[in-house]
């Protein structure tokens, strides 16, 4: 049986989102599975980020 061209990413925080984007760009179908109602994880809760203090959203 041939390998599947789909990939599941479990967790929609910044790592999961980035992995999903890159995998899609590389030519795979991605299922991004997240427990909460929206993706973004903890990073979406941050106001700014070290060290440049730019907005994290």
């Amino acid at each position: 049986m041939a390998k599947s061209g789909s990939i599941m990413v479990l967790g929609g925080g910044v790592a999961g989102v980035q992995a999903a984007l890159d995998l899609a760009d590389l030519g795979y179908y991605v299922y991004l599975v997240e427990k909460k109602a929206s993706i973004g994880g903890v990073m979406a809760q941050l106001d700014k980020t070290f060290p440049t203090n730019d907005c994290s959203l």
Binding site: K3, G5, I7, G13, V14, A15, L26, G27, Y29
Partner: peptide, 29 residues
């Protein structure tokens, strides 16, 4: 931290892609 998480995330995409290279573009729409 975030930069390292983002780096690892891209890295993991490469590794999954190594495994499934023969199936690339088979499921995309």
């Amino acid at each position: 931290d975030i930069p390292e998480s983002v780096t690892q995330a891209s890295g993991v995409a490469a590794i999954a892609s190594e495994l499934l290279a023969e199936a690339r573009n088979s499921k995309t729409v």
